[in-house]
Amino acid sequence: MTYCVGLKLDRGLVFMSDTRTNAGVDNISTFKKMYTWAKTGDRVITLLSAGNLATTQAVISILNERTKTPSERSPSIYDMPSMFQTARLVGDTIRHVIEEVDSGGQRADSFGASIILGGQIKGGDPRLFLIYPEGNFIESTPDTPFFQIGEHKYGKPIIVRSYDPAMTFEEATKLLLVSFDSTLKSNLSVGLPLDLQFYQSDSLKLGFEKRIERHDPYYEIISEGWSQALKLAFQSLPPFEIEPRS
C-alpha cells in the first residue's frame, strides 16, 4: 500500500508521497513513487503512483523510453501540447500495461494502479488530474482541490478541515505532514521517508524538493506537537453526563 497527495493552491502545486511497499514483519521495502519530467521554460510534469509496483514501474519505464525515441504511434511526454493531452497519454499507457497482463491470463484487477498527475505546460495553466486504472481521469476543481491515492482515509479529515487555497507552500507542507503522520500511525503499510515537491505557477521550472527521513527534526516536531494538540483538544471538550444537571 502507499499514500500520495497532490494539492492545488493559488500559488501552485504541492506533491507528497511515501516510499513503503510490501509492508510486513520482516519484509519492508522502499521505492520512490514520485517522478518528474521537466524542461525549463517549457514544462514541468510530476506523477505520483499507487498500486501494483510492477504496473507502475512499467508505466514509468514506457514513458521514459518514449522520451528517448518518440514516434507518431508512441509520442513522448515532452511532445504533448497540453496537460489534458498528457493525462490522456498516461491514461492510455496504464490501460495498455494492464491489458497486456490481462491478455497473458493473469487477473488484471490484482495489477491495478492509480496515478496523480500534475504540472504545467507553456501556454496553459497548472492542472492536476487523478488517473484511474481503466485509463480515464478527472481534473481537480475548486470543489475538489486535492487528490489522494492509496491509504487515504486516515489522512483525509485534516486536509478537508484545514485546506485553504491561499495557504503558502510552507503551510501546505505542515498540513500534509500532519495528514501523513496520522496515516503512518494508523497503517503499517505507509512509511517514511516521504518525498515532497513544490511547483510555483508559471515558473516552468522545478521547484523545491526534499526527502523527509525518519528522524527529520521538523517532522518529529510536527508529529509530537500534533499528538499533544489532539490530547489537549480532547481534554478541553465538555464531559459527557449520564444524568442531566437539575
Rank of each mutant, 00 (worst) to 15 (best):
M1T: 11
T2S: 15
C4R: 03
L7G: 04
L7V: 14
K8T: 06
K8C: 06
V14D: 10
S17M: 11
D18Y: 05
T19S: 15
T21C: 10
I28L: 04
S29G: 02
K32Y: 00
K33I: 06
M34S: 09
M34Y: 01
T36W: 04
W37Y: 14
A38S: 15
V44K: 13
I45Q: 13
A54N: 13
A58F: 01
V59E: 07
I60G: 04
I60L: 08
I62K: 09
R66T: 05
T67K: 07
S71M: 03
E72C: 04
R73C: 01
I77R: 08
M80C: 12
P81R: 09
F84E: 09
Q85P: 00
A87T: 00
L89Y: 04
V90K: 02
V90Q: 06
G91N: 07
T93F: 02
R95M: 09
R95W: 02
H96I: 01
V97Y: 00
V101Y: 13
S103R: 14
Q106H: 04
A108L: 03
D109G: 01
S110K: 08
F111W: 14
G112Q: 15
A113C: 14
S114Y: 07
L117G: 04
G118W: 03
K122I: 03
G123N: 11
G123A: 05
P126Y: 06
R127D: 10
R127F: 01
L128I: 07
P133M: 00
G135W: 04
F137K: 07
I138H: 06
I138M: 13
S140Q: 12
T141D: 10
P142D: 08
I149E: 05
G150I: 01
K153H: 14
K153W: 08
Y154D: 06
P157D: 02
R161F: 03
Y163A: 11
D164E: 08
M167Y: 15
T168I: 09
F169L: 11
F169M: 11
E170F: 12
A172G: 15
L175M: 12
D181G: 10
S182V: 02
T183H: 02
L184E: 04
N187C: 10
S189P: 01
G191K: 00
Q197M: 15
F198Y: 15
Q200M: 02
D202N: 15
S203H: 05
L204A: 07
L206N: 13
K210W: 03
R211I: 11
R211P: 02
R211M: 08
I212E: 07
I212S: 08
E213P: 00
H215R: 13
D216F: 11
P217F: 07
Y218M: 11
Y218E: 12
Y219D: 03
E220W: 01
I221N: 11
E224V: 10
Q228D: 11
A229Q: 12
L232Y: 12
A233Q: 13
F234R: 08
P239G: 09
F240K: 14
I242F: 15
E243L: 14
R245M: 09
R245C: 02
S246L: 15
